[in-house]
């Protein structure tokens, strides 16, 4: 369903290479993310998934290649400018602001779309008050209710359990009203119930908000269940991509995950995949 559509993809990664000194983190990575899809990037540890995310959000500058957002190249934009375009992300090791409440963390997501200036802010009058009230209403009605975190809105982030923190980080990203939402391991370290909750939220975001989702995840069950398109990275290169079921049968993928020794052969024989 994602291939062969004439519309411009939401995000295009074209020939992106990135190296740190002699270490090649990404080599000629090319794939695209269709508008309104859930695209997952998988791969063994150290395959370059997070480096790819950092290149897309503007922390790393690729040596070669180009990244296009709804058809326009964003290679020259800094991270805050890309955020303003509608590129939101969460982090693998949760990057919430510990000194703030849940509510303030979520409100920060809206920062780039507000106009309040320093003078307005000091007097909390006119625009500052209007904007803050509109923001509070939006955050409450669209995000806090949606993610079912109304019981912790005034709690300090530092005091929350891990699963809830992940959810607050998702809430903050949603407050940006993103066009593309990048999730770096949204269910890492979660139990089954929490994983199912998160998968449900991700699907709801896609369905209700029409947001395009690009996700890095290790939980294969979830990736295969909810993705429209899967990209497999290994040693910084794309070794396979396609529908979840196709990728699962791909022998290069099986080799990357299980090795080409006995286990891989066994698996191949069991699943009857073409060798």
């Amino acid at each position: 369903m994602t291939e062969g559509v004439a519309v411009t993809p939401a995000l295009e990664i074209e020939g992106v290479s990135l190296s740190f000194g002699g270490l090649r983190a990404l080599t000629d990575v090319t794939f695209s993310v269709a508008e309104g899809s859930i695209t997952s990037v998988i791969g063994p540890n150290g395959a370059g998934k997070t480096s790819l995310f950092n290149a897309i959000s503007g922390f790393y500058k690729p040596d070669k290649g180009s990244i296009r957002f709804h058809g326009a190249a964003i290679d020259r934009l800094h991270a805050p400018e890309r955020a303003r375009l509608g590129l939101a992300r969460t982090f693998q090791n949760i990057a919430l602001f510990r000194g703030m409440t849940v509510l303030d963390n979520i409100k920060l997501g809206r920062h780039a779309h507000m106009r309040t200036g320093l003078i307005d802010a000091l007097f909390y009058f006119g625009r500052a008050r209007r904007e803050e009230m509109a923001l509070r209403a939006e955050v409450e009605q669209r995000i806090i209710d949606f993610l079912e975190i109304d019981h912790i809105r005034k709690a300090s982030v530092a005091a929350l359990p891990y699963g809830l923190r992940k959810r607050v980080e998702l809430a903050r990203a949603l407050a940006m009203r993103p066009k593309i939402l990048m999730l770096d391991e949204p269910v890492a370290g979660m139990n089954r119930e929490e994983t199912e909750d998160m998968a449900r939220f991700i699907l709801d975001v896609k369905e209700e908000w029409g947001t395009t989702i690009l996700m890095v995840e290790h939980d294969m069950g979830m990736v295969m269940d909810i993705s429209d398109h899967v990209v497999v990275l290994n040693f910084g290169q794309v070794i396979a991509q396609g529908l979840p079921a196709e990728v699962q049968r791909d022998s290069a993928v099986i080799d990357a995950y299980l090795g080409s020794g006995d286990v891989g052969d066994l698996r191949r024989r069991l699943t009857g995949a073409a060798a």
Partner: peptide, 26 residues
């Protein structure tokens, strides 16, 4: 007043974690 608005929040965001502040467009 400042710390009830977006500017004050941006300051705290920079203090707590400047990388994710940038990702939020600060």
């Amino acid at each position: 007043n400042l710390f009830r608005t977006r500017i004050g929040r941006a300051f705290i965001a920079i203090r707590d974690r400047d990388i994710s502040a940038e990702v939020l467009g600060i």
